[in-house]
């Protein structure tokens, strides 16, 4: 069977439209199972009708991003926190 999903690096471009930092390098914690890991390690389905990033541990939705004309919708309900590396 073919692999159905991409990895979280597929989020870098679309999230780069919204955030000044590279969110794929941040550490996210799954709201469903508590697993923490780089956003780049999420399992990404899409890109159409929208990007759906799921936890590699429990497969619950961690992040969703829909890009429409003139707007993007970002859903982070499945994320407890994002640890974003920043300079001191």
């Amino acid at each position: 069977m073919s692999i159905e999903h991409l990895d979280g690096n597929a989020l870098a471009g679309p999230l780069g439209e919204i955030f000044a930092v590279d969110v794929t390098a941040a550490t996210g914690r799954c709201a469903s199972c508590g697993l923490a890991g780089p956003v780049a390690s999420l399992r990404v389905y899409g890109p159409e009708p929208g990007l759906v990033a799921r936890c590699p541990g429990c497969e619950e939705v961690v992040l969703r991003l829909v890009r429409g004309p003139g707007a993007a919708w970002l859903d982070l309900r499945g994320t407890i926190s994002l640890r974003v590396p920043l300079p001191d």
């Binding site: 009708p49 929208g50 969703r64 991003l65 829909v66 429409g68 004309p69 707007a71 993007a72 919708w73 859903d75």
Partner: peptide, 19 residues
């Protein structure tokens, strides 16, 4: 699922209710 992420609540293709 999609209706909470920007897609239209009804989605009539003839009225192009996408978002």
């Amino acid at each position: 699922f999609w209706e909470t992420a920007g897609y239209h609540d009804y989605g009539d293709p003839w009225r192009e209710q996408r978002y």
